[in-house]
Design a protein around this nucleic acid. Structure first.
Lengths: 248, 248
DNA sequence: CGCTCGGTTGACCCGTTTCAAGTAACGTGG
DNA sequence: CCACGTTACTTGAAACGGGTCAACCGAGCG
């Protein structure tokens, strides 16, 4: 099994590599790879980091070497513009890939901070490109991941550009819901790891507006919200919130 | 020169491939490639399309086969959401790559339409991935292009999320200015290919607000605008517009 | 136990949207 | 080439959504 060209080139170790046993295989980079390919990928992920809540994983301006996959936990990325105004560009959960923005300039363009105690796997980018030459599926999947990021950003642009506060919140909650569901958590009952201010920053709203919109959704009975804990009572009705705006 | 492994594999034709003589080499996909590599890339770009102003190059939902590079002309991409509201997601000019959003789902997620008579080169994506296995520089450059798209989207998100109308316009004009400059056109004197409505859609504003903001910038003497023709009189002052907002 | 930080709610204000009217540019067909 | 209709653009006045400021509450942490 290890007796083939690829295995020789990459000197697959006998110790079980981390990826092969990782429960995230199907969410993360190794999607669709076979055992051997996964093992090769696992070889390259040499470091696993533990990041405590509030600590930074990445800083703007930092030289780019690696991508990071969230092994567990929760992150936010944000950009600080010239006058110190912070804008959250994304929230990242288990299996998602951090640092894609840095490939173009070879410097990170966001700060990334853990919103709860978390672990990440470091993926040295040069090595990733190298082995993806031999594992076309990996290369293709990586392209899909980057493309997905672009699509997601377009969706956010859509929200920011033409949706009212309540619609943005609805979209935000539904997006979280889906992502939790995909990870085997409840799609209707979850904890918001971020503050109202961070939600607002992501959605282009002030924290007071976030608070008010959530309150209104609760009054309407569509959601129940208690501090950080949310329950989606009526996903149907929540979804309908998205379809009711003016043109722009 | 054609007598090597790569050339044999890809049967480089003797006819000069389009990329090698293309003036866009350094803006487009072949950045940094040597003659032979460029020729191989050129081999794969088998079709060149002419798109008339107002015609669509891509439709949402269309199956994904190829990327397209703008050879000359000007495009906009937009998404139509559920209730028919149109949001422009980007403007594309010479040398820029269209269709990256479609890689993830294998369907196009935007409509793309020419804002003036244009030409594009079709880049079959499967072939691009294939040859990028043999041309690591091409693969890497492609990753940079995707990453750049992500960074750009983050910048737009920033604008949409926390900037006032006039600041958005200033950022928009400066961005166009830079891109024109990079293509050898005047950075202070150019034609807006898009309507006020399209600018507004891109920037999350109504066309009237775009018009008013442009008028104000003109009153201040920072720009001169006459219909579609813009002149940036004071880039310094225009840049300073970006640094003066509240937090969010 | 008290302090701090995050969250909620109210009142007021401001910027952008909306609605409307009028003008300028453009493309088409005669 | 001109006349026409259409589309794009500008500008004003009024309405409204979200921002701002401020007070208060509640949870979590040291």
């Amino acid at each position: 099994m290890s007796n083939n060209a690829i295995a020789r080139n990459y000197a697959v170790s006998r110790v079980q590599s981390k990826c092969t046993t990782c429960s995230l295989r199907e969410l993360c980079l190794p999607v669709g790879l076979d055992e051997r390919e996964t093992e090769i990928l696992g070889e390259l992920i040499d470091h696993k980091f533990r990041i405590r809540r509030g600590e930074h994983l990445l800083h703007t301006g930092l030289g780019f070497k690696s991508l990071y996959t969230v092994r567990n936990g929760f992150f936010k990325s944000y950009v600080l513009d010239s006058d110190g105004c912070q804008q959250v560009t994304g929230f990242y959960m288990t299996g998602e890939l951090l640092g894609l923005d840095a490939i173009s300039s070879e410097k990170h363009t966001c700060d990334t901070v853990a919103l709860e105690d978390s672990e990440v796997c470091e993926v040295p980018f040069a090595k990733l490109e190298e082995i993806s030459r031999d594992i076309p599926l990996l290369m293709h999947h990586f392209h899909k991941i980057m493309s997905r990021e672009i699509v997601q950003d377009h969706n956010i642009m859509m929200l920011l550009g033409s949706r009212k506060a309540e619609e943005r919140l609805a979209a935000f909650l539904l997006n979280l819901s889906e992502r939790f569901a995909k990870r085997g958590y409840s799609s209707t009952n979850f904890i918001l790891r971020m503050t109202r201010e961070e939600i607002g920053s992501y959605l282009g709203l002030k924290l007071e507006t976030v608070s008010r919109s959530l309150s209104r959704l609760q009054e309407e009975g569509v959601i129940a919200i208690n501090n950080k804990h949310v329950r989606l009572n009526d996903i149907q009705r929540l979804s309908r919130k998205l379809y009711s705006s003016s043109d722009r």
